[in-house]
Design a protein around this nucleic acid. Sequence first.
DNA 1: ATGGATGCAAACTGTTTGCACTACT
DNA 2: AGTAGTGCAAACAGTTTGCATCCAT
Lengths: 147, 147
Amino acid sequence: MTMEIEKSNQTKVRDIFSEYLAEKRHRKTPERFAILSEIYDIEGHFDIESLYKNMKNKNYRVSRATLYNTIELLLDCKLIRRHQFGQNISFFEKSFEFKQHDHIILDQGEVIEFCDPRIQHIRKTLEDIFDLEINDHSLYFYGKRKS
Amino acid sequence: MTMEIEKSNQTKVRDIFSEYLAEKRHRKTPERFAILSEIYDIEGHFDIESLYKNMKNKNYRVSRATLYNTIELLLDCKLIRRHQFGQNISFFEKSFEFKQHDHIILDQGEVIEFCDPRIQHIRKTLEDIFDLEINDHSLYFYGKRKS
DNA sequence: ATGGATGCAAACTGTTTGCACTACT
DNA sequence: AGTAGTGCAAACAGTTTGCATCCAT
């Protein structure tokens, strides 16, 4: 029988969020940690309405307002990322310890993740040419399977 | 005094649209051509609400419904492209005879356009690796001017 | 105890839809 | 003549806001 040495991801992101909230002088409410925890239990992408229904089903007492608020905080401390797959609905995914990656959107909503270093080269070039500080990007390819 | 040989862009896109409508058995209504014409008078990006107000100010009798409908047709025949700069509002720009380009979004809504061939290399690689047919992409960098 | 955070519902905003009327084919 | 397309207004969906209450500090 060995002691659990490694912290779980859940614990790590909790710590990061806690530290972030402290630094920003925001209150550490149970709702905020419950939401973070729920999100980190989700595999893949999610939208706010599903998260809301998901939590309601588990008998959490949360409001959409708090979800939207908390999502902003989590974006700010980089624990999640926002995506615009469709037209008018935001999708999110957790981003802690997951390698930066981009997406290919296929028909029927299938999503492939990939990572190509050349995007960072483009970024560097743009920063040099236009004298910019680029802090983020979003890249989507749209296509379909052959045959 | 020489004859005007070159067709204006306005005339060319009109022809393209006309041909598209014929092929798809859609009617050639004056509204559709008026909207196309208005769009091709716009420099840079626009959203539907501004286009609507713009046309209303010029005493066109158009409805939002028709604008949304026509925009779909113009997207379909590739005379315009859709962008998602912000969260929940679609921006568009004309795309006839304008080189494919991507965007850098700076603070205060400033937008820089650029074109980097490496994005096509990435595309090719993805098509090969995943056996896909990629027909489009969207790429945005987000940043700010240095100093 | 104080005021930041919450839940709830109403308001907002961009987009879509239903319907009676118009006009392209 | 027939019906796709139109304008208008109402409906819709995702998000934001106002407010009374709650609870982390």
